[in-house]
Design a binder for these strands. Structure first.
Lengths: 222, 222
DNA sequence: ACCTGAACACCGTTCAAGT
DNA sequence: ACCTGAACACCGTTCAAGT
């Protein structure tokens, strides 16, 4: 079953790593089949030996990033189930914000990679510890995945996707500036809430949201 | 202040409507500046009179779809705040699933269009009715937006984005089929939860998730 | 089995020119 | 003010050919 022959100069892993580096260093616009090929010093069509198409390249990049998440944070005593989920969510968010270009790709591909399955598998265990029924556990996993990945994606959507992102404080100031231009006659409640809405992209908002979700899941455990 | 001159053959609205129709009828791959221009029988660069770039075209499409959401569902007596939010969320999800190509675009653009602001404005009112503090209201709005839009985007990410999507039942069967291939030795809990995970893309899961979020928000109201 | 050469059918965007 | 002509610098993907 050896797949390594003398002619092979690349591997899927090397292709994915090169694509991620391109995305990290040069931004979303730089990610292309041809760009990856050039970085690897091969012709564009050589890439198709390793991925079926551009979407496959993107999936490989997503998997590479997701495989670096700190799953061990999901371990711990049953009574700490909230903290285990919160800590992992915060850690995963930090990882994705460190690869903003890859984070953008996550909402346009199925969440079915091996690492995504592993995250689901572990979360099922944590929600079992929380006392949820088998059905509620599985539904809760999806609720959490949507919230974490969706939240990061919408945060990154306000940036150019280049790494590193501007510091959080800077992004909040820019948002406050933009929001303060709103017409208070048209959107009075939004204008009154400018400071909080400016902070929608912060880790405080992220943790607050996750905590509300955890409250909702705790209620489902009776 | 009249902006309409005798030479003008197009408007932003017409450009956006054409782009949406292209997206709806031909799928995500068909949406391009050149494609829209061709459909309008003008040269590609004529489009730049109406939108600054391709991202601007996408934002115009998003706004066109979002402007069609049934905001009136958010009205009603204070004690029905949960039902108002749930009904609106279900309705918005149906709208987005009816324009899957546009739904895909929503996670890669800032949520700052007039209609997005209007949704936030109304939700602030509903969460005030729910008894949440001003800060909790504003944080809750973002939690809800992330869950609703993120959920639809991840559902659509499993399809080719062509309209109409396969019926929900068909998508669930395909998911169950794929999930049932998993190795029970590697992902035992996931294999045990195949039926529920297959139904992650259903409206039942969507409503369940929203209800958990509403439970969490209700708890925040004390 | 893997990579190359060459081509096809596209893109977004710019700038000067016309009206 | 708005649209066109023409061009630039790219794309993803295919297929036959080489080794």
């Amino acid at each position: 079953m050896a797949t390594r022959g003398p002619k092979r100069t690349l591997t899927v892993e090397k292709v994915a790593a090169t694509a991620l580096q391109l995305l990290d260093d040069e931004g979303p616009a730089a990610l292309s089949v041809r760009g990856v090929a050039a970085a690897l010093a091969v012709r564009p069509n050589a890439i198709y030996t390793y991925v079926p198409d551009r979407a496959g390249l993107e999936r490989a990049v997503i998997e590479l990033v997701l495989s670096q998440s700190q799953l061990e944070l999901l371990e711990g005593p049953a009574r700490h189930w909230r903290k285990r989920i919160r800590d992992y969510a915060v850690s995963l968010r930090a990882l994705l914000l460190d690869h903003p270009g890859a984070a953008m790709l996550m909402m346009s591909a199925p969440m079915d990679s091996p690492s995504a399955l592993e995250v689901g598998e572990r979360l099922l265990g944590v929600l079992a510890d929380a006392g949820l029924s088998p059905t509620a556990r599985a539904r809760g996993v999806w609720l959490l995945i949507v919230q974490v990945v969706g939240s990061v994606a919408l945060d990154v959507a306000e940036t150019d996707g280049r790494r590193p992102l501007p510091p959080e404080a800077e992004r909040v100031v820019a948002r406050r500036q933009a929001l303060s231009q709103l017409d208070a006659e048209v959107w009075p409640r939004s204008v009154a809430a400018v400071d909080v809405q400016a902070s929608w992209v912060t880790s405080e908002q992220f943790v607050w949201s996750i905590d509300r979700v955890l409250d909702g899941l705790a209620a489902a455990a009776r």
